[in-house]
Amino acid sequence: MTLRVDIWSDIACPWCYIGQSRFAKGMAEFEHADQVEVVWHSYQLDPTLPERFDGTEAEYLMQSKGLPKPQIDQMLGMVADAAAGEDLPIDFEAVVPANSLRAHYLLKTVARHGGDVDAAEHALFAAHFAHGEAISDDEVLVRIGTECGITAEQARAGLADETIADEVQADIATARSAGVSGVPFFVFGSKYAVSGAQPPELFLAALEKTWSELQPEKPAFITLDGAGGEACGPEGCD
């Protein structure tokens, strides 16, 4: 028996970076983790973002959100503190704001060729938030692909594959039709949804609840008293 968990995520989303870590901690406490199938889905917070924005993350957010710098700084500080609590380094001064579409192409390519998608997600998050690399850069993407179990040739081919692009757009369309308005977004067993980078305990509870409901129901018998019939059991017969 397998419990499927679908996760919509965007590499440009710091809470998705944090959410991946918290979900992994919940999974580590789940007794049946080896029977969980995690399926990552693409999502884009800002599909209009250029391949590489000429400015800092704070400048990009000020321009795109129309918020004053003190408010942006406060928001980024809160996120950085949450990431530090997960031992995830974030350097917003080094972040290169970049369109995440091609990063999603790589993730689909890694999945198609049997690579480690969880590792690729983490490596892309780290490249973007900790190492100041552009997640729209093909050389960065190919390197991460080869680190996560696929060949450079497979990575390059996937970045140019129209069927991969179609898969990414299908994920985004599914999220839109389901009313998903923010990420990370987790769906357990096609039944329970969890929105946001919740604490590990909540993810564990969702896994346990969904798993328990996947188990076949035990038959419930109604016992008629007064029959007094003889019977045999493990210790012998009456």
Rank of each mutant, 00 (worst) to 15 (best):
M1H: 03
T2E: 14
L3V: 11
L3Q: 10
L3R: 05
R4F: 08
V5D: 15
V5H: 05
D6A: 10
W8G: 03
S9Y: 03
I11S: 00
A12E: 05
C13M: 11
Y17H: 02
Y17W: 11
Q20C: 07
S21V: 08
F23K: 01
A24T: 10
K25H: 08
E29K: 13
D34W: 00
Q35D: 15
V38T: 14
V39Y: 09
Y43H: 04
Q44G: 06
T48Q: 06
T48N: 08
F53W: 12
G55M: 07
T56R: 04
E57P: 00
E57Y: 13
E59H: 01
Y60F: 13
L61S: 07
S64G: 00
K65I: 05
L67K: 07
Q71T: 08
I72F: 12
I72M: 09
L76N: 09
L76F: 08
G77H: 07
D81S: 12
A82K: 00
A83T: 06
A84D: 12
A84Y: 00
D87K: 05
L88M: 11
L88I: 09
D91G: 04
E93G: 13
A94H: 05
A98H: 04
L106H: 05
L106K: 04
H113Y: 15
G114V: 08
G115N: 06
D116E: 13
A119L: 14
A120I: 12
A123N: 01
L124G: 02
F125W: 05
A126S: 11
A127Q: 06
H128Q: 04
H128L: 03
F129K: 01
A130D: 14
S136L: 10
R143M: 10
I144K: 00
C148I: 14
G149H: 09
G149S: 04
I150W: 13
A152G: 12
Q154M: 06
A155I: 08
G158K: 09
A160T: 08
A160Q: 12
D161G: 02
E162M: 10
T163Q: 15
I164N: 00
A165Q: 12
D166H: 08
D171Y: 06
A173L: 15
A173P: 01
T174Q: 14
G179F: 13
V180T: 09
S181G: 04
S181L: 09
G182T: 14
G189V: 11
G189A: 11
K191T: 12
A193T: 04
S195I: 15
S195P: 03
A197Y: 09
Q198L: 06
Q198R: 05
E201A: 12
E201G: 05
E201M: 06
L204A: 03
L204W: 11
A206F: 05
K209P: 00
T210R: 13
T210G: 04
P216R: 11
E217R: 13
P219D: 15
P219E: 15
T223F: 15
D225Q: 07
D225V: 01
G228W: 15
G229S: 07
E230D: 14
A231I: 02
C232M: 07
G236D: 11
